[in-house]
Amino acid sequence: NQESVVAAQLIPINTALTLVMMTTRVVSPTGIPAEDIPRLISMQVNQVVPMGTTLMPDMVKGYA
């Protein structure tokens, strides 16, 4: 089963992602794949992401 990127903390809107903000977990439905974490660093979220929420492609500016 593929791991997806999950918020390790509350991420406010327009925050640039850092490694410490993200963790990985096997979730359903699947979100952004864990191997894309290096690509996500410094990208901004376009909404508030509560802790434990799976990051979906449409939540990250410039990802999709």
Rank of each mutant, 00 (worst) to 15 (best):
A7Y: 01
Y63E: 03
L55G: 00
M43W: 05
T23W: 14
A64V: 10
I32S: 01
L10F: 07
T24M: 14
T24C: 07
A16H: 05
M43T: 05
T30H: 11
Q9E: 14
V60C: 03
T53F: 13
E3L: 05
N46A: 09
A7Q: 01
V60F: 13
G31C: 04
Y63W: 15
Q47G: 05
T23F: 11
M56E: 08
D58P: 10
V6D: 00
V48T: 13
D58H: 14
V45R: 00
S28Y: 09
T53W: 13
V60T: 02
P38K: 05
A7F: 02
L40S: 00
R39Q: 08
T18K: 11
A34L: 14
P38L: 05
A34V: 09
P29C: 15
L17T: 00
V48G: 08
R39W: 06
V6N: 02
P12M: 12
A16G: 07
V49F: 02
N14H: 09
I13M: 09
P12R: 11
Y63C: 15
M59G: 01
V20T: 13
T54D: 01
V26M: 13
L40Q: 01
L10I: 07
P38H: 07
L40C: 06
V26H: 05
V6A: 06
M56R: 12
Y63R: 02
T18L: 04
M56H: 06
T24H: 14
P12D: 06
S42V: 03
M59C: 06
I13Y: 13
A64E: 07
N1G: 12
G52T: 06
Q44Y: 10
I41K: 06
M43F: 13
M56T: 12
V60S: 00
V49N: 00
Q47K: 15
Q47D: 12
G52S: 11
L17A: 00
P57S: 12
T23D: 09
G52P: 01
Y63M: 06
Q9P: 01
M43Y: 13
E35M: 11
D36G: 07
A8Y: 11
V6C: 06
M43G: 13
M21A: 06
E3R: 04
Q47V: 05
L19I: 05
M56G: 08
P33S: 12
T15D: 03
N46P: 02
P57H: 13
A34I: 08
M51V: 05
A34N: 06
P57V: 12
I37G: 06
M43I: 12
L17D: 00
V48W: 10
T18H: 04
V60Y: 01
T18N: 04
Q2I: 12
A34G: 11
T18G: 04
V5T: 04
P33A: 10
